[in-house]
Amino acid sequence: MDDRPIRDTFACGIRTAAIADATTDEAVSAIAAAIDPADTEFLLVFFSPRLDPEAFCTALAARLPDVRIAGCSSAGEISDLGISDHGAVAIAFPRAGFTIVSTVIEAVSRLGVDQGSAAVAQLRASLVRRRPDAAIGRTFALSFIDGLCNREEAVVSAIDWALGEIPLVGGSAGDDLTFHGTTLLHEGTVHRDAALLILVHTEHPFRVFKTENFEPTATKLVVTRSEPERRIVHELNAEVAAFEYADVVGLDPATLTPFGFASHPMVVRVGGEYFCRSLRNTNPDGSLTFFCAIDDGVVLTLAKPVDLVASTSRAFEQIEAELGSVDFVLGFDCILRRLDAQNRQVLQDVAALYRRHHVYGFNTYGEQYRTMHLNQTFTGVALGSGKG
């Protein structure tokens, strides 16, 4: 992979910058050199936790003082460099064709429905003030949430009804699978235990979408003892959780890792559709920590991955058929999909697919799609180059 800085401009006016294996100063310089402040409505940045977030945030604000900036730490960056690490990706939305407003929702570990809904209502009012003719069909919402807050479902629930018909996509911030702490940036300030909510009104056609690459099997695992507030499962089928899971998937419980979890996902059925409930890590007492909400009595179904490249390619083809052509994709890809691609030695094929479809984004600790918080999924918004 060529890790030199790259920059690009798309037909819809979006400018991008990306750099891998960079220091904080190198990442800031690469972004600042690619961005035209006079033509930037809003700047999104996704960055490695190896970069100092406070220094990165302060330096970006100093180099681009008139640009509104938001973003989060990642578990990997996605750009025309491919799927890279230890750098940063920046997406600059132009003033022409885009009107964007944003807010921070603080203390999401204690978030109530009223607080989340009020934040959405205020943000919608802010958009209308800037764009009185704003139409719901021309607006989508982006969410970026602390990936270790264990509250993504509550955040999505709190903002869902207030968004109404505005579709939501997003991702949970990561920290390269260290699970020490994730960070969010918003207009010169670093935030933790928080969520960012962004409304994007655009004159360009768009589609929000999701894709996954698994199918259920006949094997069931029932959660028989758990700590829902910590997303920890102590027992599956009345057995020590790690031992029971390892037994049914044919792995050694002493060597369970995220790579094994990625290749042996578990799903739950909701409304006739299956959604992943992905494992994060094994604990010393044999319990399992999940990336998604979990509770006693939940029936987990063991799933098997299907061809990641083919399923993702089909999703892009469908979006292209709906839009006519796709100019740019803002994408949020679960870190476990990346690990599964590495396991199956198709990571370069996935990266080539993303480059071909101009995907920019990051590897997440969870994904948001409309009303749901998901795992082991790719969610995104595709933009066409014409007027909607």
Rank of each mutant, 00 (worst) to 15 (best):
I6G: 10
D8K: 08
D8S: 11
F10T: 08
C12I: 02
I14Y: 06
T16N: 05
T16Q: 08
A17P: 01
I19Q: 12
I19K: 06
A22M: 05
T23C: 00
T24D: 08
S29A: 14
I31N: 03
P37T: 14
A38E: 15
T40N: 00
E41D: 03
P49V: 02
P53N: 04
E54R: 13
A62W: 02
P65A: 08
V67R: 01
S74R: 02
I83R: 00
D85M: 05
V89F: 01
A92Q: 00
A92I: 00
T99F: 01
V108T: 00
G112M: 04
G116Q: 03
V120T: 07
L123S: 08
S126D: 15
R131E: 12
D133W: 07
I136T: 14
F144P: 00
G147R: 10
C149A: 12
R151N: 13
V155S: 01
I159K: 05
W161R: 14
W161M: 06
G164R: 04
V169M: 12
G170S: 09
G171E: 12
A173Q: 04
A173M: 10
G174S: 06
T178M: 01
F179W: 04
F179M: 02
G181W: 00
G181H: 07
H186L: 01
A194N: 09
L199E: 05
H201G: 12
E203T: 12
F206G: 00
F209P: 03
K210A: 07
T211Y: 03
A218P: 05
T224G: 03
T224A: 03
R225C: 13
I232S: 07
H234C: 05
E235H: 15
E244G: 10
A246N: 11
D247F: 13
V249A: 05
L251E: 15
L256G: 11
P258I: 04
G260P: 04
F261G: 13
M266E: 08
V268C: 03
V270Q: 09
S278C: 09
A293D: 15
I294H: 10
I294F: 07
D296V: 15
G297Q: 11
V299Q: 14
T301M: 05
L302C: 09
A303C: 07
K304S: 13
K304M: 10
P305H: 08
V309S: 13
R314K: 15
F316Q: 03
L323Y: 03
C334V: 02
N343K: 07
N343R: 09
Q345K: 15
D349F: 02
D349Y: 09
A352V: 14
H358Y: 04
H358I: 01
Y360L: 09
T364S: 10
G366R: 12
E367C: 05
Q368N: 08
R370I: 14
T371V: 04
M372I: 15
H373P: 10
N375E: 04
T379W: 01
G380V: 02
G384M: 06
